[in-house]
């Protein structure tokens, strides 16, 4: 089913791109313990991305050739198909073009500073926690197994980012001002997390995917609860950006891919 493949890629891309952003902190954290914690979180996201890509590759390889040819625009992937070879996790991460990436706009936003990094993680972790909790019930055994395996990590991520939201909101004047600025600028990317794409709607009906309506309220309540503890106000709903899930990205994704894919693109068809 092509919708399942798109869905699996969306989950993989979210994990890969967020992990990539977080990994940019490695060696630059504000204190050694947090540097290590962030690197560990980046590793968790990368591990989840790999599980989803491996499953996506399996699905892609099972498609009839006629469908494979038009699935991605990348000529590098098309030449793999022409050679009668199978794609693997690395082909999907390193050889797809930007418009074939389905991650949400939130995760590709730059780190900027600790406050922006924390709030991006927090908004995403709250979503991810309820999302994986639901995905465990998926009728698709692979997706439910990945969700179950990842939930422990995601629970830890959520605890970590919630703690930091509270520390910054209820810390010093400067930290409160910085986290408020970060919230004001990143809030507009939260709507997309909970708005269902065509692929999401299709897989939700069949019991494979998560019905995001179910977690919308949970997300809002959790964000409100943590913000209350942090002395922070939840912004009014306002304008929400959409498009990442359909391959319409910000300028940032291009730079991420330029870095991430550089070696594979510059030296094609090699083992690393």
């Amino acid at each position: 089913m092509k919708e399942l493949l798109k869905y699996t890629l969306q989950l993989a891309d979210n994990a890969l791109i967020l992990g990539h952003r977080i990994s940019e902190w490695c060696g630059h954290g504000p204190v050694l313990e947090q540097d290590i914690a962030l690197t560990n979180t980046a590793l968790d996201h990368l591990g989840q991305a790999r599980s989803f890509y491996q499953y996506a590759a399996e699905q892609f390889n099972a498609l009839p050739v006629s469908e494979k040819e038009h699935f991605f625009t990348s000529s590098a992937i098309q030449s793999i198909i022409k050679d009668g070879k199978q794609v693997d996790e690395d082909d999907l991460a390193y050889l797809r073009d930007g418009w074939d990436f389905r991650n949400t706009l939130l995760v590709e936003q730059p780190n900027k500073d600790w406050a922006y990094t924390i709030i991006r993680s927090f908004f995403y972790d709250v979503f991810n926690f309820f999302f994986y909790t639901e995905l465990q019930k998926s009728t698709d055994v692979t997706l439910s197994a990945i969700a179950e395996k990842s939930l422990k990590e995601v629970t830890y991520h959520l605890r970590w980012s919630s703690e930091w939201v509270i520390r910054l909101g209820d810390g010093t004047d400067e930290s409160a001002q910085r986290i408020n600025e970060a919230i004001a600028n990143r809030w507009q990317f939260t709507g997309e997390l909970l708005t269902m794409s065509e692929a999401e709607k299709a897989v939700a009906t069949s019991g494979i995917g998560v019905d995001l309506e179910k977690i919308k309220t949970l997300w809002k309540e959790r964000v409100a609860a943590v913000f209350a503890e942090a002395n922070l106000d939840v912004p009014a709903n306002g304008w929400m950006h959409q498009g990442g899930k359909e391959g319409k990205h910000s300028e940032h994704l291009g730079y991420i891919l330029a870095e991430l894919q550089f070696v594979q693109r510059a030296y094609p068809n090699m083992q690393w």
Partner: peptide
């Protein structure tokens, strides 16, 4: 951020984390 495969990236991240 430029590691040439996902496996190499994971191993490198883990290594740098070890050094920390």
């Amino acid at each position: 951020t430029r590691a040439p495969s996902l496996r190499r990236k994971a191993v490198l991240l883990a290594k740098v984390q070890d050094e920390g």
